[in-house]
Amino acid sequence: MKRLPIATLATRCLIAAFTLGWTLLLSAADRDYGLSPVKIAEDTWVLVGRSEDFSFSNGGNIVNTAFIVTRDGVVVIDSGPSRLYGEQLKRSIARITDQPVKLVLNTHHHPDHFLGNQAFPADTLAALPATISGIHDEGGSLNENMYRLAGDWMAGTDPVTPARAISAGPLEIGGHRLELIALDGHTDADLVILDRSTGVLFAGDLVFNDRAPTTPHARLPRWQAALDQLEKTGFRTLVPGHGPVAGDAGPIRQTRAWLSWLDQTLRRAADEGFDMTEVMAITLPAEFRRLAVVEAEYRRSVGQLYPAYEQRALSKEAGRP
């Protein structure tokens, strides 16, 4: 091979560096969640995430976030899985209204519902007390795990704990009569928001629609009780934490049916002496097989929940037969 003159080499290096720089810039610019708010009621928009697991391709956008534009500012319900999502959500809101964001509610302390907090002013962030302590205690490890699951989309994301604790009760903002409902079961604190002015119920992750529920912090009996309560709220439109928006209680019943089946299956398996690998191999009933990511979610739930059922089945004190 002929040796290249130094000048040519230098030029080539420059071109290479330039190209690399641009490629990196472009790949950052490529990271667009493609958020498109859908108007579901007067003043009310929802951004529906994909019914998938967290991945490098969806960047964690598997969650529903929402906002209500009131006369006195915008109320945001959940801030998404990353700083980038939060910023793009803020821009989506700005394209629809000039009103500033007045309140950002984190429905619970799972990463896809609060890791966009950085994009919003600190004094707008609010959550139930147990959600605040959940974000404070587990935010760091949940954030780290999201980096592993969603990669570069998470760049620059740090957990921000809301400073403002809210409690259950009515909250009127800019003509919207909101009812904050404090429940639990999906986690130790699950905030539900009913907008009495529009009839929209923001159910957070107490309700999943056509996507298998997640259970890392679940207590199934409490969750079932919460679902009973939600069904009585008299909503017109239901925004689940994951999956499409609905006009009836179908997603509540679907979530309840899955949780009941899960509870019965795990209890029976533990009472019959199943090893955890055998429980994971159980064939799912046909009615649930159409739920998105149900196989993966089922195995995760077995891993999360089965040890407690097992313990009960093995322990004389807990009243095993």
């Binding site: 090893d275 955890m276 690998t277 055998e278 994971m280 195995r299 995760r300 891993g303 040890p307």
Partner: peptide
């Protein structure tokens, strides 16, 4: 295996 602290094996 979601939970690396508790992976079931038979």
């Amino acid at each position: 295996a979601e939970n690396a602290m508790n992976v079931p094996v038979s």
